[in-house]
């Protein structure tokens, strides 16, 4: 029996569809109501999700990509004394073992890992059809070990996965006030504006849902323009599959050069201003 868990309704639907290609017996656990599984247990918090997933004694637990999911998955694995793998992008069951593919070493390598069952896997599932059911819904009540004082949800500002062109800024843009030059370039190109982890999570020059990389969004636009981004492994892991990569950097020796089709050796701001003007013509 497989348990699927996600805190995102879209991902839950995809994951349930994928799980049903592996087994007829799929139980969903989520903080919301949904009808893409025969049986659903609504568990509002991480602590409750850990309890109820573990109680099902599943042979496989599938969770969608996300920080809560990774946390819940690792905890469930410890409860079930089961192996765990996160950031997987494929999964097969072979001879009673679960074989997954994932990135390793900051995104420098692809690793194939074999897990004994029961196993717990965080995965971005392949596209599979999801059916609707007359779902039997249970509410899982209880008290967790931590008290949630408040939760603030940031509104989503962009959909990077569907963008055809992305202009992405790194620390090399120099300051929050300069991000507008990259934004103007993005506008003339009809591109989405994204950033590296320092620019988003640390410095807050851009909202955090615009972070590209291993711990952010993995993107594959037709054209990716990296402005003032050094090209560390964890950033590359999120954009390597892009069509054409153009970099702008003042340093000829930055690792991005090895990972770009074209690198313009120039000042990020001067280049953005000049090319925006040229493209307007």
């Amino acid at each position: 029996m497989i348990v699927v868990y996600s805190t995102d309704q879209e991902k839950f639907k995809k994951l349930s569809g994928f799980a049903q290609t592996l087994s007829d017996e799929v139980i969903g656990v989520a903080p919301f109501r949904d009808n893409h599984v025969k049986k659903l247990i609504v568990a509002k918090t991480e602590d409750l999700a850990v309890e109820t997933i573990s109680e099902q004694r599943p042979s496989l637990v599938l969770l969608s990509e996300g920080k809560r999911e990774v946390t819940v998955g690792a905890r469930v694995a410890a409860r079930l004394n089961a192996p765990f793998s996160s950031s997987c992008n494929s999964l097969k069951v072979e001879g009673g073992k679960v074989v997954v593919e994932r990135l390793g070493f900051g995104g420098v390598v692809k690793a194939t890992v074999e897990l004994s069952t029961p196993a717990v896997v965080v995965i971005q599932p392949p596209d599979s059809e999801s059916r609707e059911f007359e779902t039997e819904i249970h509410e899982y009540e209880g008290k967790g070990k931590m008290e949630i004082l408040n939760t603030k949800r940031q509104t989503s500002t962009v959909n990077l996965q569907s963008a055809k062109v992305i202009v992405s800024v790194g620390r090399g843009i120099g300051g929050k006030e300069n991000v507008k030059y990259a934004e103007e370039l993005a506008q003339v190109l009809n591109a989405a504006l994204a950033g590296s982890r320092p620019v988003t999570a640390e410095l807050k020059w851009l909202p955090e849902d615009r972070q590209v990389g291993l711990s952010g969004t993995k993107v594959r636009p037709k054209v990716y323009i990296a402005v003032g981004i050094s090209g560390q492994p964890q950033h590359l892991a999120g954009m390597k599959d892009s069509g054409l990569v153009i970099a702008v950097n003042k340093d000829k020796n930055a690792p991005i050069v090895e990972n770009a089709d074209y690198t313009v050796i120039a000042d990020a701001i001067e280049f953005c201003k000049a090319i925006t003007e040229a493209l307007k013509k």
């Binding site: 931590m146 949630i148 408040n150």
Partner: peptide, 10 residues
């Protein structure tokens, strides 16, 4: 920091 959520817990 659980992007897109920020949660305070005790």
């Amino acid at each position: 920091n659980l992007t897109p959520e920020v949660e305070e817990v005790k």
